[in-house]
Design a protein around this nucleic acid. Sequence first.
DNA 1: GTCTATAAAGCGATAGAC
DNA 2: GTCTATCGCTTTATAGAC
Lengths: 180, 180
Amino acid sequence: MERADVIPLLGEVFRAHGFEGASLSAITAGTGLGKGSLYHFFPGGKEEMAAAVLQDIDGWFERAVFAPLRDEPDAAAAIRASLAAVEQYFRSGRRVCLVGVFALGEVRDRFADEVEGYFARWRAALAAALQRAGRPEAEARDTAEDAVLTIQGALVLARALDDPAVFTRALARLEHRLFG
Amino acid sequence: MERADVIPLLGEVFRAHGFEGASLSAITAGTGLGKGSLYHFFPGGKEEMAAAVLQDIDGWFERAVFAPLRDEPDAAAAIRASLAAVEQYFRSGRRVCLVGVFALGEVRDRFADEVEGYFARWRAALAAALQRAGRPEAEARDTAEDAVLTIQGALVLARALDDPAVFTRALARLEHRLFG
DNA sequence: GTCTATAAAGCGATAGAC
DNA sequence: GTCTATCGCTTTATAGAC
């Protein structure tokens, strides 16, 4: 077992329990690793584990969502592809956004840079794509902000109502709003 | 000091720390009450405190938002008024939604009825108002869901970016989408 | 690299004085 | 109704065997 293999498992534990709720015993249960191994990989304890998870998630979004939105020549196609990637990543509404969970908690301040950076880059990358797709700058920025927050809100409401369809409906409306 | 006076203070503590993060010492700090008084008012401990807070919030929304949406003769005016009430309640994006915070955590399942009920009644009341305002039923339901989730997402993003203006902009766009 | 044992602190909750 | 003292348990983190 390597450090890199542990991080996704840690991610699911933090996603399910939040930062304060993710006790070491929940983490050992979720990873199958004892405290000894955990502290061997992450000498900084829970804080280092959470930081590693945030970096891992950020890296995934950077590669799969942000970079294509910024660089793909066909901006409209990149936007559509990013929505599909997001739908898959959040398991069609059955999975929650860890960065969003952290953002709402007091833990937000401890990881302020990571949380802010994630959402700021998402919004900026989508705004850039919308502008390349022909929208005026101000409208592109507004629409991008609306899209990012719609995805977050859809995840909240889907979990609140225990109805993943809320998320898929919201993404469908969003796509219609972006292109229709 | 009466039980009813404590509940709003408890609400702010749970809002800031979440359920698991709201330790008894945080609660004593936030309320100014020792454990003795706390357990005198809420023999069931933290769980009873959180339940009381959820009920209090639900009661406020029922009176100030849901009931007017359902009953006001002028549906359009009721919708506008509800948005204004929501903007004020969430302090223009500086305050987070406690029910949304609970919804994202594992604590959601412990208060499943309260969390589901709050959002389901919000969505239903807004859908009813939109229908009375002339929208076809399916469109009214869709639009109501979009509105509720937009508000939640706006709160997440506003806190993530530490920028309350994200929330006020989202509400402005929402009003435009509902009427413009 | 993984484990068990253990430390020190904090947790939720209770008891009982006033 | 509010307090302090205390219980039993869990927490994060460390130490050291293997």
